[in-house]
Amino acid sequence: MNRDNLKSKNESESSPEKTRKGISRRGFLKGAGMTTVGTVALQSGVLGNTLDEQSLDEKAIGPDAELIKLKVNGESHSLAVEPRMTLASALRDKLQLTGTKVVCDRGACSACTVWIDGKPVNSCLTLAVEVQEKEITTIEGIGTPEKLHPVQEAFIEHDATQCGFCTPGMIMTASHFLQNHPNPDLEEVKTALRGNLCRCGTHPNVFKATLSASKKM
């Protein structure tokens, strides 16, 4: 099926000339390092549809920072964010909740795991504007030095930290898993943690801690 045909057909009603023909795809990308950053002129008029910008602008947020509300660990916060700000950045840079770590910044390491409405997600791939109505829980919210979560206790007991940078993400993942799997075996624990990267090689103790915490929850 030819996509170009399809598109010209769909667009024929509004703008018959706006096919993809003649659109430069060079853009600002470099072909094998042959061009210099920022020297290629911006392409204009490359897009088919005319946007009803007026109607969009009225309801759209941004692109500059606007005040939003986030409910984090049971507390409401008003903060100014640009729509492009990730939840990880909002938590860390705006709310100083730096327990949430950013490692890969692309959803591949789970270090930035927080709970949205009780489910673990990557805060690096979540925009702050998306979660305004949601309950956000971070590592700072599941336990405190005075009143630790059983998983936190078990991590201390079983030496499940080395450098500690993956630890918050590990704990947010493990503690959620145990809520729904009260009596897991080792394979289930491994499966639950299979998205969390650790470079120090602390996994064996993370497994032990998680199994041990399951008996106290």
Partner: peptide, 11 residues
Amino acid sequence: KRYDALAKVTG
């Protein structure tokens, strides 16, 4: 017990 484990597990 590791000295800084408490700080690490609580973020």
